[in-house]
Design a protein around this nucleic acid. Structure first.
Lengths: 150, 150
DNA sequence: CATAAACAGGATGTCAACATCCAGTTTTGT
DNA sequence: ACAAAACTGGATGTTGACATCCTGTTTATG
């Protein structure tokens, strides 16, 4: 239901939130998030265009988060690559349904609204802070030195 | 975010709920719901396989609702053609995340849960009964005699 | 200032979702 | 039994999402 691209974008965003000390090159992000590097490159480009991440070219370049994790919610990441399209007008093009959606499409739109709400309510900082056994993306507690560069 | 197929299935289900007197042939459903007839045929086959609708072959045949509208919720229709896939295990395949999802995937799964909940909470009967200006699928109040057969 | 690291973006390939078409089968009503 | 209405299922076409690759450009650093 959520596109693969959304999943990739979220993983990348979380990884960048976890590693704010220096720009992270695509290859490293790809390794850590298990996303195909070539495709991740495209996803990161999109994220950069919408300001979710910043790109840094050249040696020692890479990508960094565009905002503080506290100010970046999941919805912004999702919308950057695959916007949630709320229903504003009747999908059948019935004129009399123009603004007032029929009950069917109203319900579907409410489901979309609930997703928007759930995503907007969570910042990346909250994702990182949540006390839990499993750290996002990491098999074991974060230790970048163990992310090999092979 | 919801597939086109889901939209088509919902329209068909609503139409059949509105017309319970006799089986409705694919052509007629397609006209009323503005769905490509050939493709709708496939969608109806899927709905029939899962019992949401019943097919009737031969002259005077067509499709009818498999259950009373009061007993058929939107989620059943959706799941028949494009099941909502909750997240049960870590998408990265990290073993330590096995059952306990990391905060990221937990949030995404919660969004899925909210969709499930919204859909499960609404029956077709409720969609039809909702007092509103616009009747589902219909430009004007229901009058089947005006659905031409051209 | 040369070199290597790294992003940018265009071209291309693959596959599943969406969509169409048709030949075959079932069923009703004469 | 026959004809017409209607579903069934297989074959096929189309398109966008996912994915890869390569060439060109940028930039930190010795």
């Amino acid at each position: 239901m959520f596109s693969q691209t959304v999943e990739y974008a979220l993983r990348a965003a979380v990884f960048l939130a976890q590693n704010r000390d220096e720009p992270q090159p695509t290859e490293r992000i790809a390794k850590a998030t298990k996303v195909p590097p070539a495709y991740l490159s495209k996803v990161l480009q999109e994220l950069a265009r919408s300001g979710v991440v910043q790109s840094h070219r050249g040696l020692k370049g890479g990508f960094s988060l565009g905002k503080a994790p506290e100010d970046l919610n999941i919805l912004e990441v999702v919308n950057a690559v695959d916007p949630i399209k709320r229903i504003h007008t009747c999908p059948l093009g019935l004129k009399s349904h123009g603004v007032r959606l029929c009950p069917l499409h109203h319900r579907v739109d409410q489901a979309l609204a609930s997703v928007e709400k759930a995503f907007a309510a969570t910042t990346l900082a909250e994702v990182l802070a949540e006390p839990t056994d499993s750290v996002p993306l990491c098999e074991f507690p974060i230790d970048l030195s163990r992310v090999s560069d092979d």
